[in-house]
Amino acid sequence: MEINSETKLDYLFLLLSHLGKTVYLQKEKEKLQDDFLSSITHEVRTPLALIRGFAQVLLEDDDLYEKNKKDFIRTIYKESVKLSNMLDKLSFLSKLDRGKLLLNKSLVEPERFIKEIIENFYSSADERGVSLTVSSKGEIPSISLDTEKMRMVFQEFFRDALKVTGRNGKIEIILTSTDKNLKIELKDNGKGIPAEELPFIFDKFYKVSSLDNEEGTGLGLVLAKRIIEEHEGSLTVKSQEMKGTSFFIFLPLYW
């Protein structure tokens, strides 16, 4: 094949555009890492400000009322738990992203599995006057799940649902199945999520305003979605302010 100057130019052009693309992708990657680091720094600063601030007050002020002392220590404790939860979740997410977290699946009966998790939430639900029910529509086949990781997903949903439902609130878990999928609807009649917030609720560190969630890390839903996706499933949401929210988990029955 004859290589003329025109071919050489084409080749050079291709090489340069490839190089440009690589540099662009590298820059994008670095930007994403910078943004992520900046988000973490931002999220850590507020709990740290509280821990440092209240600890300083406790150390410096001898005239504190016993009631204040307890309250400040409680805040320090809660904020440190929050920080530790955040770090656990970040480490978990990082392992997921790097493909380092393998699923350890076993066959479970979905309704029984969810009922076992929900048992730990009955007393908090009772205290708040919230009803918590699990039901199945039709026959539900067994499904292969990593029970430990899926337990985290459901715990996250139940905790959030309890926070947004007031007295006489209702949380329903409805299971249905098609030929290919298991659909789990987690429905509450709580405050709902404002429409303008819906596109962001699965973003890292996004905190849904209606949750008014002091302990929230803004990582729970991200983690839930990632775990479901690891199971080749999907997570969607429908919500109406003041009427409630439904999260839908779709999991393949055979994979």
Binding site: T46, A49, L50, G53, V57, D61, N68, T75, E79, E214
Partner: peptide, 15 residues
């Protein structure tokens, strides 16, 4: 917007 930070700042300034 953080309730606890309001509590901390209020305490420090009221003092």
């Amino acid at each position: 917007d953080d309730f606890n930070l309001i509590k901390l700042i209020t305490y420090i300034l009221k003092k």
